[in-house]
């Protein structure tokens, strides 16, 4: 009982008050692994490591404060990731943030990568193989490891736009507005990001499955 009445308080709540119910590990014990995981996610969505660290720590504070009130079915990691997602989206929506996004040469070079897929008449140079669905949990896990590597290989600004759309769930119109790029540009960036990921997954996953 006292556990619950203490848990709703501000950050001054002593650590003892945010313990898990009897017999389980304290929330503090979960924080290092949780921080690690959240950082991995945050870095895909914001380019600045210091900022990613700040947003993750803000998230961990909410996790610690609200842990005993968290009654959802979601696991700790899933719940914390949802909080982080809101923190990052809020940051993108904050009026003080610098809006312009500077595309680097690396981002622009993706255009060439996409171009090499096509013949002059607009057809594909090489046949496109079918997508291989993961057949079990282990394969899905491997696939996600590959996806993470492929996401990490995207040029920074391109990756950021992709994450704003596919993780944070921004509409393209809002991405353009928040980043100060034209709608056409936004479409092109997303198209190139998806193509690059598709090709990366194809090489690393489909090809690996085809020739074990």
């Amino acid at each position: 009982m006292s556990l619950e009445s203490n848990a709703g308080g501000a950050s001054a709540v002593p650590a003892e008050a945010v313990l898990r119910p009897a017999g389980q590990r304290s929330i503090e014990a979960e924080l290092p692994a949780l921080r690690h995981r959240l950082l991995r996610h945050a870095r895909f969505a914001v380019n600045d490591h210091g900022l990613a660290e700040d947003l993750v720590q803000d998230t961990l504070i909410v996790v610690v404060e609200q842990y005993t009130r968290h009654r959802g079915d979601a696991s700790l990691g899933t719940w914390a990731t949802a909080i982080l997602k809101n923190k990052i989206a809020d940051w993108y929506r904050s009026p003080t943030r610098r809006r312009m996004v500077q595309m680097s040469a690396e981002d622009t070079e993706l255009e060439d990568t996409v171009d090499t897929l096509f013949l002059a008449n607009g057809g594909y140079v090489d046949p496109v193989p079918a997508w291989q669905q993961p057949e079990n949990r282990e394969e899905q896990r491997q696939m996600m490891t590959i996806l993470e590597r492929c996401l990490g290989g995207l040029p920074h600004q391109t990756g950021r736009v992709f994450m704003m759309r596919e993780w944070l769930g921004f509409e393209t119109g809002e991405i353009c507005e928040r980043l100060g790029v034209s709608a056409e540009n936004c479409r092109t960036i997303l198209h190139r990001a998806r193509t690059a990921l598709r090709i990366c997954m194809q090489h690393k996953w489909i090809d690996a499955k085809a020739s074990p």
Partner: peptide, 26 residues
């Protein structure tokens, strides 16, 4: 070819959602 591209794009999209929304990597 384009049907396969469509599958791949949707596959990448749903895998990304899974990667960021669930706890499998933890």
């Amino acid at each position: 070819n384009c049907r396969h591209v469509e599958e791949q794009l949707k596959g990448v999209q749903s895998l990304t959602a899974t990667f960021f929304e669930t706890d499998t990597a933890l």
